[in-house]
């Protein structure tokens, strides 16, 4: 439930997806909370679809937001969002937290495709995304970070994406940008002056037998097979549009 924390909102939205027994998926848990409003929208095939609406102006500094989505054995769920999430500065300059916790069971399919996260000037957001996959689960996950709105300096943004499969680490990545990040984040090793960075992770059990080959997707993006049965597209771009173009192309191939 929403709680009014002394210096911000604490809210946790929850989704649970289970097979409906008819080849589709139903959502016995669909709990909106505070700024995180969830709507069931029209899915495709076996997939149920949930769209996060109303997160546009959150998180503000001091907020603690979380989304938990569980896809049980054999269920299929797509989660997307109606608009980009903009991290804004809040009261007292405190950082905001946004924690995403995802689980997918045996034979479950999860497509986590939110719109971009935009770090506005003066904001400070710490985001974590933690994914626990069963060995036979399938995942498509997209993350996009845009550093500053149009023509604006970026805020401080740190993200950590941790994915475990069958209890073992599959991918663990932290990114830190902006005035509160350690030095060099804008330089030749990290972003090279780019303002949009994104990733598309695709986990499929069948990659264990036949992993896709690494491939360059232009000068600033690459598709790489991980040590486990997954591929990761890593891309940097000058802006959100160019970033999405690269990730969409990969999504069409692997989505």
């Amino acid at each position: 439930m929403t709680a009014l924390a002394p210096e911000g909102v604490a809210a946790t939205a929850r989704i649970t997806a289970v097979p409906d027994g008819l080849g589709g998926t139903r959502l016995p848990v669909l709990e909106s909370d505070g700024p995180l409003a969830l709507r069931r929208t029209r899915g495709a095939g076996a997939y149920a679809r949930v769209t996060v609406v109303g997160a546009m102006s959150a998180p503000l500094g001091g907020d603690r937001l979380a989304i938990e989505a569980g896809v049980r054995d054999g269920a299929a769920l797509t989660v997307d969002s109606a608009a980009a999430t903009v991290a804004l500065p809040g009261r007292g300059g405190r950082p905001a937290r946004y924690d995403v916790r995802l689980t997918a069971g045996a034979g479950a399919c999860l497509r986590w495709l939110p719109e971009a996260l935009i770090s506005a000037r003066g904001s400070d957001l710490r985001m974590t995304t933690r994914v626990e996959l069963a060995a036979r689960a399938r995942l498509v996950l997209r993350e996009e970070q845009i550093l500053g709105r149009y023509g604006e300096e970026t805020g401080t943004l740190t993200t950590r994406l941790t994915v475990h499969r069958a209890g073992r680490p599959l991918l663990d990545q932290e990114l830190a940008y902006g005035p509160g990040a350690p030095g060099g984040w804008d330089g030749a090793a990290v972003l090279g002056g780019n303002r949009a960075v994104g990733q598309l992770l695709v986990v499929r059990p069948e990659f264990e037998r036949s992993p896709p080959e690494a491939a360059l997707l232009g000068d600033n993006a690459v598709l790489t097979p991980l040590a486990g049965p997954a591929v990761l597209v890593t891309a940097v771009a000058a802006d959100a549009l160019r970033l999405r173009r690269v990730l969409d192309r990969a999504l069409r191939t692997f989505g």
Binding site: P169, D172, A189, L191, A214, A221
Partner: peptide, 21 residues
């Protein structure tokens, strides 16, 4: 090992793959 940092650099990951080729 979850207690260990996982800081990464997108351009290093991207260009390493190109450089290897």
């Amino acid at each position: 090992p979850g207690a260990l940092p996982a800081a990464s650099a997108p351009l290093l990951d991207i260009t390493a793959q190109a450089h290897a080729a």
